[in-house]
Nucleic acid binder design. Structure first.
Lengths: 219, 219
DNA sequence: CTTTTTATTTAGCTTTGCCTAAAAATTGTT
DNA sequence: AACAATTTTTAGGCAAAGCTAAATAAAAAG
């Protein structure tokens, strides 16, 4: 069964919103995420519900059905595989790949995804540290946490970012903070939650806003 | 300036038709090539004319403007580069890449094409032997000719195919006829234009229909 | 427990790209 | 030249995906 580009984008957005908050996803949230109007969202939701991709009760938001969830995951799988291709093979900087992957993720061909994945050597995460689902849709949610909530003097591994904007990613590049960097929080300012951190062998001061957008895992 | 997928497909079809016959391209020809109806073609032609992509006089067919031609060539460039990627990097057989390349050719990103081309090492032809335009739209039309029109006992180089259907390409694979194979016409049957040919170190009998779909160049 | 605010849905309109059926122009044939 | 056949265009409609504005439901506030 095949879905339109727009349907796939809605499913993806709903999936991401569902991951964030555990509640049913509201029309307005979807509208904001997709940069569209609530009325357009209602229209599309009805179509998705008719195709059994979402559970929908008027005025009560939506949740993905099994079928909707797996469709969303397959789109995300493609998106992340293409991001790996763009960064690892074509040498794109990691902050420039999102828009292109947004287009590539809608290419329809099972075989293409399978062969691309093999060509890339079965990567488990994309350039931003997000896990890549396998062909059955399975992926392990790394138990990552935001740097802002980390303990002092523990060694962490940078595993991903929350904000994927070019501005933020370029900031990280400038500070040599990459996926895989070792990070330790050396001190924390109670007043504004800014902190001094050690990244591999360099020390930096970063604001709360930065620390809120870096994911790390204990190591 | 950006054009829709549909507009790009029309421009591409018109370009190919224009290459084939030198006359202005007719509405019906476009409709047949695009597997759509003549009335739809008229609609689209008007839009393309309004955007100065084609020259259009009612009832007299169309021809591409400079802008239309270069847009078409850029789509063809992308199509052929992606075909090379699919065959050389992802190991697709050459008869399976067309449909996927039809999708990939519409991905919008100058940078992607540039980087893809470099990654593929600036190929000059696609897997079917068709030339790949450079970033300025230049490409040399190889002075190829159909095998059916070749002289006896001359050495030729297989440079492309006219028919790109899976059936035909698989036939060629079976006979080990590839782009780059050496071909010599050993004998020709006047009655039905069938011929005996030497392909590298193998001999085959082929019908007129086969010989009409293989392009060679003198060597 | 009303009232106000906010969220959601409905109604109706727009554009793109396609369709069918009918009209008009062109081309081919006596 | 006049009729027939073919090609092309027009007219009117449809589905997808979006929009604005108005109506309605739910949530928040008094």
């Amino acid at each position: 069964m095949k879905y339109s580009r727009s349907e796939e984008n809605y499913l993806k957005a709903i999936f991401h919103l569902q991951q964030a908050g555990s509640r049913g996803v509201s029309t307005n949230d979807i509208a904001e995420a997709m940069e569209t109007k609530a009325s357009s969202v209602t229209d599309m939701i009805k179509k998705l519900a008719a195709k059994d991709l979402v559970n929908y009760v008027k005025y009560q938001g939506v949740s993905l059905t099994e079928s909707g969830r797996s469709t969303a995951i397959m789109v995300i799988r493609k998106h992340r595989l293409w991001e790996v291709f763009l960064v690892n093979k074509l040498d794109f900087p990691w902050d420039k790949v999102h828009d292109i992957a947004e287009q590539l993720e809608h290419i329809k061909s099972e075989e293409l995804v399978t062969k691309l994945e093999a060509f890339l050597d079965y990567p488990s995460v994309d350039p931003h540290g997000d896990p890549i689902p396998d062909q059955h849709g399975n992926f392990k949610q790394t138990q990552k946490r935001l740097l802002v909530k980390c303990d002092l003097n523990e060694k962490y591994l940078c595993v991903g970012v929350k904000d994927s904007s070019s501005e933020f990613l370029r900031f990280l590049d400038k500070k040599h903070i990459n996926i895989g960097s070792n990070i330790t929080v050396l001190s924390k300012e109670e007043f504004d939650d800014s902190m001094q951190i050690q990244v591999d062998d360099q020390k930096h001061f970063i604001s709360k806003k930065i620390a809120e957008n870096i994911y790390v895992s204990a190591q």
